[in-house]
Amino acid sequence: MTLTDTHHATAWQVQSLTLSYPDEEFVGRLPLLRAAIRTLPAPLTAPLTAFFDHVAATPLTDLAASYVATFDHRKRFSPYLTYFAYGDTRKRGMALLRFKHAYRAAGLELDDGELPDHLAVVLEFAATGDPVVGRRLMLEHRAGLELIRLGLRETGSPWAHVLESVSATLPPLGKREHEAIARLATEGPPEEEVGLAPFAPPEYMPRPQGGS
Rank of each mutant, 00 (worst) to 15 (best):
F84I: 01
I181H: 07
E203A: 12
K100W: 00
P202N: 11
A9H: 11
R98N: 10
V166F: 02
Y83H: 08
A105V: 01
L152M: 09
R142F: 02
A11C: 14
M205C: 05
T58Y: 04
L60A: 09
H8T: 11
A102E: 09
R207L: 14
R135A: 13
M1F: 13
T18A: 14
R38P: 00
L123V: 11
L170P: 04
L163C: 12
Q13W: 12
K91G: 07
L145D: 09
Y83Q: 03
T2Q: 14
H141G: 00
T169A: 08
P131N: 09
E203F: 07
T2S: 06
L115R: 03
D112N: 11
V194S: 14
E177W: 04
V68G: 04
Y21F: 15
R104D: 11
T39N: 08
L196G: 03
T70I: 04
A36M: 06
D111G: 09
S20C: 13
H118P: 06
E177K: 01
L17G: 02
A95K: 02
A143N: 04
L81S: 06
V55S: 09
E140L: 06
F71E: 08
F99P: 00
A180I: 02
E179R: 14
R34G: 11
D62H: 13
P206Y: 08
A143R: 02
L150D: 10
R183W: 04
L152S: 10
A180Q: 14
P43L: 10
V162L: 11
V55T: 13
M1D: 12
F199K: 00
T39E: 15
L81G: 03
H8A: 12
